[in-house]
Amino acid sequence: MLWDSLFSLTNAVAVVAWALLLFAPRRPLTYSAILYAGVGLLCLAYAAMLVALLSGQVDAGPVAGAGQFDPADYSIEGLRKLFLSDGGLVTGWTHYLAFDLFVGLWIARDADGKGFSRLAQAPILLLTFLAGPLGLLIWLAARERRARVAARR
Rank of each mutant, 00 (worst) to 15 (best):
A45D: 05
A52F: 09
R26G: 04
Q57R: 11
V103R: 14
P25C: 02
L82P: 02
D86Q: 11
S8A: 13
A45F: 12
W93T: 04
L6R: 14
K114C: 04
R145H: 12
V149I: 12
L101C: 11
C43R: 06
D100W: 10
V58L: 07
S85L: 07
L53E: 11
L136K: 15
A24F: 05
Q121G: 06
L101P: 15
G115R: 08
V58F: 03
W3G: 03
A98L: 02
F99Q: 13
D100T: 06
G88M: 11
A17R: 03
L130Y: 15
L29T: 13
V103D: 11
N11Q: 13
G78C: 12
G88L: 12
Y74L: 10
L125S: 11
A24Q: 05
A66I: 11
L53M: 11
K81C: 07
D112W: 07
L79T: 03
L29F: 11
D59N: 04
G135D: 10
P71S: 10
Q68R: 15
P123K: 09
A120I: 00
G87S: 08
A151V: 08
A141N: 09
D73R: 03
L53K: 01
L119T: 13
G78I: 13
E144V: 02
V149M: 12
W18Y: 09
A66N: 15
L54V: 08
A60C: 10
D59H: 05
Q121V: 04
F102W: 02
L97Q: 05
F69W: 15
A37S: 09
R153A: 02
R80V: 06
D70W: 07
L89I: 02
S117Q: 03
V63L: 14
D100F: 10
R26I: 00
R146E: 08
L9S: 10
Q121R: 09
R145F: 09
H95E: 00
G135M: 00
A142L: 04
P123R: 11
E144W: 13
A131C: 08
A48I: 09
V63S: 13
I34V: 12
L20K: 14
G115K: 06
R118K: 03
K114T: 05
T128E: 01
D70V: 05
L97C: 02
L44D: 12
G56V: 07
R80I: 05
R146A: 06
G92I: 00
L119R: 14
R152N: 01
